[in-house]
Structure formats: structure tokens, C-alpha cells
Design a protein around this nucleic acid. Structure first.
Lengths: 228, 228
DNA sequence: ATACACAATAATGTATGCAAAATGCAATCA
DNA sequence: TGATTGCATTTTGCATACATTATTGTGTAT
């Protein structure tokens, strides 16, 4: 270690740490939707007492990642079709805003990074590598969201993103939809390169509407299967 | 009480109740920004123990209504100019979306209510009654937000609204800005009556941008005074 | 056999107690 | 006189104990 770095000592409180860990577990899918999560079990899992765990659960409940039923504990929130119809238009409006702001602030470094991610994504598309496609896709959206330079916006976007993230992986895109999505992304890149915020915003809104339809269809299919 | 009302028995937990009460205190201004709020004092005030109070504080911290400094307690969040620049564009995007959705769902009853609130607001404008103007203004925006029929959107809007509400009352609108705001509201009403969602959305975005400028100016003035 | 009632159990909700960190104050030294 | 260090006090962080509410399992009556 260099002597002049003197990096600040980070000492996080347990509840903060727990919020992050639990959120990851839920968003990544280790805790399946509908799962009951008794405090006691979580406490044992993380080796903490109930006090900080409860504080964390309250926060996650407020984020709508879990449902807190009074006197009956917490359940990992399920994503319904109605939720999809609610959340995606909001994400569309926010991504459109992020796109506009990102155009205004765009640095060459970030544009290069986005170009690289886009190229990698196209590669995955050519190879029909859906999971790779999703990964690079996510990077692009994250880069744009960060480039917007609005921490509050980023926080809200991440919150909504967390709620729908798992469902998005269910989405078995049709070849048709996939081709459309790629075309939209090419337009996005072009708008970015032209620093055309208004156009980028419009594209992103349309893009999110497409995502909404895809995810909703996948969710309806999943629900139908579950009902069998 | 009528026998057939059978209103559901609401038994809220203390932390839920506390979140609401504290939020009201902060948003309404009873707890001034910058005020330190020691747990002990709040507990004494509400006659509860520290556990539910801490759970409530964590939630409010996550809402950005208070700043939670590790090992140093909670401070009622101050609204900076940067915050205004961050929050208002987001509110603009969300109100625009709400406006579009509201146009799609608009009922005659709600339109009538909005017309009434608008008329009352115009009356206040004529009388130079700023606080009455704000009250009716808020009603209009709430009616539109509710008419959007998107609970998630409403929740996010309310959260952001809470953060800037107090600052908005600082705004001593110039005659010029006030006239512009009224004109924008007339356009909004016209767009609503025409069920023209796209136009309403555009107006609301512009309207919020105007609000941003006004509030920011007021905030800068307040900060300058405080610095003296 | 089913349905209801009641008790036993387990979970959540709340309060309190202990440990650790931060603040304020005073004493000491330059 | 001013700054710094050490201690006392206060406050937060966490754990545990108690209270209250749901759940479930069993027994009894129909």
C-alpha cells in the first residue's frame, strides 16, 4: 500500500450491510418470490440479532422488494402482470430523461465504453447468446444512467430495476422482438453519437415499451404454467 | 355509526405509525431542516421505545427525508440547490407520464373536480392569495397523479414531492412567473379536456421546469441570507 | 367423519439492557 | 493564551427478554 493513499476506513453498520446483502439475494433470485423469510432464519443465516435485521427488512419493504404483512412477517414480493404494467412505463419515462441528460453530459470515454458494450452485445446477438446479450445490455443502460449525472434519478432507477430484474431473465425473446430490440439499440447509439437527447429519449421510451410487452408475455406464460 | 359501514379495523404497528407521523412533521416543517433528531427525544415525544422509532428512522432515511450519519444520529435533510436540480427534472418526467396516463383514464367526475380546483386557483391568483393558490395547485396535481391509475408512480411522486414541498412554499413567485404558471395551467386544463396526453405531458414538463427555476432562485436567496 | 373450540407453539412487535462510539469539558502543557 | 489530551457523559448500535398476535394441532361434540 502506498503511504499517501490514506483511504478512509469504512465501517458500515449491520443494518446497512444487511439491506445490501438481502437486496442482492432477492434481486439475484437466491430468495425466490413468494418465499417467506422469517426473521429468525435470516438472523441465523447472517449471524446477527433481530434488531438490525428488522431495520433492514423495513427498508426493503419500503422498496417493495418484500411484502411486510403486520404480525405475519415478510414475503419476497412477487411480480404480477399489473406490476409490470406499472413499472415499465415509469422506467421508460426515467430512462428517457436519463438519456437526454446523458447526451448533454456525454464524455468521449463513456461513449467509447458504450460503443464497446454495444459491439459486444451485437456479437452476442449474432451468436444467439441471450444471457450475454442481457449482460451487455444492462451495462449500456447503466452507463447511460450514470452519465446522466443525477444520483437521485439513479437511485430510483435502480430501485425499479431491482423489482423487475428477475422477471426480465424469464423473457424468452422472440426472434422478432430481439431483432427490434437490436435495431432500437442501434438507433440509441446513433442518437448518442449525435448528442440528440430528444431523439434518444423517444427511442428509450419506445424501447422500454417493447421490454414491457416482452416481459409481460413471459410473465403471463409463467403464471399460466404455475396455475396448471 | 351506520351498521353497514363495517370499516376495517386498522391496527397499525408502531413503526408504521411513526413513519407517517415523522414524515408529516418533516414535510409540514414542524421539524426544520438541519435539526438534529436524537432518538431519545423522539421516543419521549411519542411515548414509544427506541426499537420501533429506529425502524421508522431507517425508512425515512431511505426516503432521503433525513440524513442518517453512522453513530451520530439523524438530521432532518436540508434541500440544496443541487437537490432541486436533481429532483425537479425527475418530477417533470413523472408528472408528464402521469398526465398522459390521466388523459387516457380521465373520468368526467375527476375532470369536473379539476375544473373546480382550477377555477378556485384562478380566483386566488386574481386575489394574489399565494397560499390559497398553492393549495389548489397541489389538489390539481394530486388529482392528475391519482387519475393516472398507477400506484407505484404515485408513491414515487409523493416521495419526491415530500422532499421539495417545504422549499416550494419559500418560493415568492414573481408576477411574471406567476402569470406564466397560470397560463401553463390553462393549457393543461385544455389538454386534459381534449384528452391530448402528449400535449399535456409536454406542458407539465415545461411547467415543472418553471417550478424548478423559481424554487431554485428562492433557495439561493434563502441560502444567501443564511450566510450573512 | 367433520367441524368447532381450545390450548400449545412459534412468530412477530415492543421494551430494555449492555457495549461501543462520539461529544463536551476540563486539565495540562507548550 | 491556545491547543491538545484524557476522562466523563451522552448517544447510537446491537443483543436479549418480554408481550402480543398468528398458527397449528388435538380433542370433543355433533
Amino acid at each position: 500500500m502506498r503511504a499517501d493513499t490514506a483511504e478512509p476506513i469504512v465501517r458500515r453498520s449491520l443494518h446497512d450491510e444487511l439491506v445490501d446483502r438481502l437486496r442482492t439475494l432477492i434481486v439475484e433470485g437466491a430468495l425466490a418470490p413468494g418465499t417467506k423469510v422469517p426473521e429468525k432464519e435470516l438472523c441465523a443465516r447472517f449471524g446477527v440479532s433481530r434488531t438490525p435485521m428488522r431495520e433492514a427488512l423495513k427498508v426493503l419493504g419500503h422498496e417493495a422488494l418484500i411484502d411486510l404483512v403486520p404480525n405475519r412477517g415478510a414475503v419476497v414480493a412477487r411480480l404480477t402482470c399489473d406490476d409490470v404494467d406499472e413499472v415499465f412505463p415509469i422506467m421508460g419515462a426515467l430512462e428517457a430523461l436519463a438519456g437526454e441528460l446523458a447526451c448533454a453530459n456525454l464524455t468521449d470515454a463513456t461513449l467509447t465504453a458504450i460503443r464497446r458494450a454495444h459491439a459486444a452485445m451485437e456479437q452476442c446477438y449474432d451468436n444467439r447468446d441471450l444471457s450475454g446479450y442481457f449482460a451487455h445490455n444492462e451495462v449500456i443502460h447503466e452507463l447511460i444512467a450514470e452519465m446522466a449525472g443525477n444520483p437521485t434519478l439513479l437511485t430510483i432507477q435502480n430501485g425499479l430495476q431491482g423489482r423487475v430484474r428477475r422477471a426480465r431473465y424469464l423473457a424468452n425473446m422472440s426472434q422478432d422482438r430481439w431483432a427490434t430490440a437490436i435495431a432500437e439499440h442501434r438507433d440509441m447509439l446513433a442518437a448518442l453519437e449525435a448528442r440528440d437527447g430528444a431523439r434518444l429519449g423517444a427511442i428509450m421510451r419506445a424501447h422500454l415499451e417493447g421490454k414491457r410487452a416482452t416481459v409481460k408475455a413471459a410473465l403471463e406464460q409463467a403464471e399460466a404454467q404455475a396455475a396448471e
